[in-house]
Design a protein around this nucleic acid. Structure first.
Lengths: 232, 232
DNA sequence: ACAATGCTTCGGCTACCATCGAAGCATGAA
DNA sequence: TTCATGCTTCGATGGTAGCCGAAGCATTGT
């Protein structure tokens, strides 16, 4: 009659330090993989998996499968709002948290995600394509329009028959690690990245293991001309 | 560097079912005694005491001593807001809570608190006195003004020398059980209640153990004329 | 096909914390 | 004063949940 899980259930989810660390890591809107969240919370992947399953059951986070990764994000702004409120209450009692700053700026700017472009520029590129109706995006589904095909042929010498693959889609939305948004994956994403390299617009950083992509001065200009949003 | 109590601490406070029950019982703004909260949570007083100490240390509730009772209330609206948010998230996942309805309406309307009037009418009376500057209230301190003394003498035949007592203040703010607000205690509160009875305006319910105060039809009219707020 | 990576499930261990009995203060009443 | 009530502190107990090692799926790449 009077008992029941109610707020205690969801509050206890946030009440565990490991889960709280995960949730605060997700507060900026970015989606993180299970492994990254485990590292963020300072626990092993198997423990993190258990926590994430509970958070998902409690409706606080939502998973999105992406290849062999599994990205998690906060369910919606309501969750973020409650977390903000809790943080506010905690701050009043004198428990401030040191905010972990952004990592390597170059990595955030442009990097390789498998074989396609990710980072700020990658997200910006998909934004531009979508805005100019060169692609149509519906959730994770992305479709190349006829207008888009002409655009690719004219400016990047990419023809549709180069993009067909038995098991891989032409276009796919891929969750960006540094931004909260999607960037373009699939055979088209890979082909575009390859073309950027061939045109000497950009090249992977020679440092072994680095995923940074360095744009040349001319390449950045050309890229901005094609996919610029007017801000830089 | 990255760890710290932060939101996990305050969330874990709400995360315990017993504490959550206490907090939800306080959500309507009323202040409850430690014993009442213990009963509300279905635990023994000593366990409740431990919980309340933690909630107080966490800044979620604030105590107010009142005789041998100890009233607890939510610290402020921010706390209530966060609890509301948590309840909202919990409701989405299908964990609705059966809201414990208001108890006996007559008890909420008017009742005896020790020896003075409490309930809706008791709160309304102190409101009226304060509004018309017959008393001055500063936190829990209440002082009778010269204007107030004249008012009491004229309408209720209560003189200041009737109110002096070696160990009891004339006026005192007493937390109301059903309302969130204060009502008037002290020798004045007792004297006024006694006068109401003598004037046949009201009488304690004859049921043994009942704290209900029944107003007569005429008494309610007179009371409203003196302390009415225009709403009834 | 095989190997590698990312994540999950299972089992046992450990530590924490809610809970209550008993006793100790504090306040108010007789 | 002495008694009663309300609340707190102390100590011991027990249940629960976080944690990790090892093994098991799933997906991708060679």
């Amino acid at each position: 009659m009077k008992s029941g899980p109610d707020i205690a259930l969801v509050a206890s989810l946030v009440g565990d330090p490991a889960r709280a660390n995960m949730l605060t890591a997700l507060m900026n809107g970015r989606a993180l993989t299970a492994s990254e969240l485990a590292q963020e919370a300072g626990i092993t992947p198997q423990t993190a998996s258990s926590h994430l399953a509970k958070l998902e059951a409690g409706g606080l986070v939502e998973p999105e499968k992406q290849g062999r990764h599994r990205y998690y994000r906060l369910t919606d702004d309501d969750v973020a709002g409650v977390l903000e409120g809790l943080a506010g209450l905690a701050a009043r009692t004198g428990h401030m948290r040191v905010r972990t700053g952004p990592k390597d700026p170059a990595l955030r700017r442009a990097r390789i995600c498998y074989d396609h472009l990710a980072g700020d520029l990658g997200v910006q590129m998909l934004d531009s394509l979508r805005e100019r109706h060169l692609v149509k995006q519906k959730k994770q589904e992305i479709e190349l329009t006829a207008e888009g095909e002409r655009f690719l042929a004219r400016h990047l010498q990419i023809s549709p028959d180069m993009l067909s693959h038995p098991r891989r889609p032409v276009c796919k939305a891929c969750l960006d690690w540094s931004e909260r948004r999607h960037h373009l994956a699939g055979t088209l994403g890979a082909a575009m990245m390859q073309r950027f390299a061939e045109l000497k617009w950009a090249a992977r950083d020679p440092t072994p293991g680095s995923r940074v992509v360095n744009f040349t001065r001319a390449g950045e200009k050309q890229f901005a001309a094609l996919f610029g949003n007017g801000k830089d």
